[in-house]
Design a protein around this nucleic acid. Structure first.
Length: 275
DNA sequence: AGACATGTTGCTCA
DNA sequence: ATGAGCAACATGTC
């Protein structure tokens, strides 16, 4: 499920509930897969007794800092989520990590187990965190960088290229379709075939979709929507794409579906034309 | 029953 | 060497 804005929603849920609280217990449901990058005893030593100091999200990953030098990285994969429960929470089948403070249980659950947990100890954030590509909303995410990247990937369909985290951190399947729909670019167009004006539009819509999605899904300031998706604008493709027989909210014509770049892709043929 | 799922990785082939 | 395409991962839901 989680892309850029959903990841921020989950990070904020833990942060608003328990930032500043001390971890008093930790439960793991060990699946070698999810915890494969984790030194479990080190995790326990680092977190239990430490205060949840801060957190940040980037791309589809989150980093939580405990005490001065303990860092917990989380990638939610396809089906992961973070929730908050009472401190006596009894872990359910897919709860793989539970951090308890005096007042809350912070729960990481992931049925499909495509997620990832990493623990790092040291004064600075780990290397895998600092090498995440510049955020879509940062100054370093420039139209020139996008143009150069599209040229390098010129033979791949633009839909597949938008999913590449090395240039478009946080964009996932639905955001990619949303960006292309707004930019009126057919998902099967080869990246190298986009005219400069189209590249600029694509760049601009990447930033717009990221900004609006973050506000709508994760809220502004200290607010947090009650649920994912409640704030998504009615005009977005997102709300029309899932039901078969969906109608484009702009052209009022039927949406099309196909596998492009290995993923189910939805577009509006009346709006997004080939070549 | 079978298809499909908002993600990533590692392999094969050009 | 570089890049494109695809199967695999594990489990739930329609």
């Amino acid at each position: 499920m989680p892309e850029l804005a959903e990841v921020e929603f989950y990070r904020k849920r833990w942060h608003l509930a328990a930032q500043g609280e001390r971890v008093v217990a930790l439960h793991t449901h060990d699946t070698k897969k999810l915890l494969r990058r984790l030194d479990l005893p080190a995790l326990r030593r680092g977190l239990v007794g430490a205060v949840f100091q801060d957190s940040v999200a980037a791309a589809k990953q989150m980093l939580f800092r405990f005490g001065d030098d303990s860092w917990l990285g989380i990638h939610l994969g396809m089906s992961g989520e973070l929730s908050v429960a009472p401190p006596d929470h009894v872990p359910r089948k897919h709860d793989h990590l539970v951090l308890c403070t005096a007042r809350h249980a912070l729960v990481f659950s992931d049925p499909r187990m495509f997620g990832r947990l990493e623990f790092h100890r040291g004064p600075d954030a780990p290397a895998w965190w600092t090498k995440i590509a510049p955020a879509l909303l940062s100054r370093e995410f420039t139209v020139e960088a996008v143009a150069a990247f599209l040229q390098r990937r010129r033979r791949a369909p633009i839909k597949a290229v938008l999913l590449m985290q090395e240039q478009f951190p946080g964009i996932g399947n639905w955001m990619a379709d949303e960006v292309l729909w707004r930019a009126a670019i057919h998902p099967r167009r080869l990246a190298g075939s986009l005219r400069p004006a189209e590249v600029r539009t694509l760049w601009r819509e990447c930033r717009r979709v990221a900004r609006i999605a973050l506000d709508a899904i994760a809220g502004r300031g200290r607010s947090l929507p009650a649920d994912l998706n409640v704030g998504i604008p009615k005009s977005w493709l997102f709300l029309h794409r899932w039901r078969p027989g969906g109608i484009c909210p702009r052209t009022r014509t039927p949406l099309a579906y196909a596998t492009i770049g290995g993923r189910t892709t939805c577009w509006s043929p009346a709006r997004q034309r080939l070549r």
